[in-house]
């Protein structure tokens, strides 16, 4: 049934594209709503019929994975949820994959956010990933949630010297001094790795500027696609690797599945999104090609 559905939708999409090409070559304009419709159909059918593709990890993503792999168990890793529900489809899978990877390796994770909207999403990760998949993980010993603090880069400026000045307590009001995970952590400089996830301001760039560079702390950001090209120049010196958009997240999820077969059955939303994503990209590329062919043809006609 699924296969038949996929075939029918493919025929419809590519047949339609061909028809549009012929139509536009005759010098007629295409209403922009037709483009929206094609993108919608390609995404919707791929979502409904669950079209999936195999992912091959790129070096830049593998470096992040290898870094977490190579840290000795018990290393201190901070994950910052600096995003809002609008960015969630892209970057939330990264956060969950990072949490899974760190916990399966036995690292200690510190969860925080400098975006108010990140707090609810951070708690969602705690409830759906940590508590459900790692029931043995103990709060305060294996993971801790610091929650949200207002102040943007001001927060980063303080935690680079002292966590306790900005966070006297964790999210639940427990003093940091009574949390075992903070026994050896005074400032962000004591962390072994920081994984800021987001795409706005303050976000991963500020983590590099205010924590990574001055504190000599390795940073591996997970980025919303829009800002990924802006963070690339910091790789490999100031950011050890990075995950760009849903593609980066999907590569990470596939790596996690390859190395840890126990994650075969846990949800991999980014991998699932890559099917519709790829189909939409094909349609958009087809429109770009059609547009260019028509443009050059009309220009040549104009020249004649």
């Amino acid at each position: 049934m699924t296969n038949i559905g996929v075939i029918i939708s493919m025929v419809f999409i590519f047949g339609g594209l061909l028809a549009i090409m012929i139509y536009s070559l005759r010098g007629k304009d295409i209403d922009r709503r037709i483009i929206f419709l094609f993108v919608f159909i390609s995404v919707a059918t791929s979502v409904i019929f669950n079209v999936e593709f195999k992912e091959y990890p790129t070096v830049i993503v593998k470096k992040v994975f290898d870094k977490i792999e190579s840290l000795p168990p018990g290393s201190k890793v901070l994950i910052s949820f600096d995003f809002d529900p609008a960015m969630k489809p892209e970057v939330f899978p990264m956060a969950n994959a990072f949490v899974r990877h760190c916990l399966v390796k036995g690292h200690k994770i510190y969860l925080m956010t400098i975006w108010a909207t990140g707090q609810a999403l951070m708690n969602e990760t705690v409830e759906t990933v940590i508590k459900e998949e790692f029931p043995d993980a103990v709060y305060g010993e294996d993971y801790v949630t610091l929650g949200f603090k207002a102040g943007g880069v001001g927060v980063l400026n303080v935690i680079i010297t002292d966590f306790r000045k900005m966070y006297p307590t964790d999210e639940h009001g427990t003093s940091l001094d009574s949390i075992p995970l903070f026994a050896e952590v005074k400032s962000a400089k004591d962390l072994d790795l920081v994984l800021p996830i987001g795409g706005g301001q303050p976000g991963p760039k500020e983590w590099i500027l205010f924590i990574g560079d001055p504190g000599d702390v390795p940073i591996a950001p997970g980025l919303a696609a829009v800002v990924a090209p802006l963070i690339y120049p910091y790789y490999p010196k100031q950011a050890i690797g990075l995950l760009g958009g849903v593609k980066g997240a999907a590569e990470y999820e596939s790596l996690l599945r390859q190395v840890y077969p126990q994650f075969q059955d846990v949800p991999a939303p980014a991998l699932r999104m890559m099917g519709p994503q790829t189909m939409a990209h094909i349609v958009i590329m087809a429109f770009i090609v059609i547009g260019n062919i028509t443009y050059f043809r009309s220009r040549r006609r104009g020249a004649e």
Binding site: T161, D162, E184, K186, S187, K189, D190
Partner: peptide, 8 residues
């Protein structure tokens, strides 16, 4: 060393 008194 570092300047923070609580640091090891």
């Amino acid at each position: 060393g570092v300047k923070e008194p609580d640091d090891p």
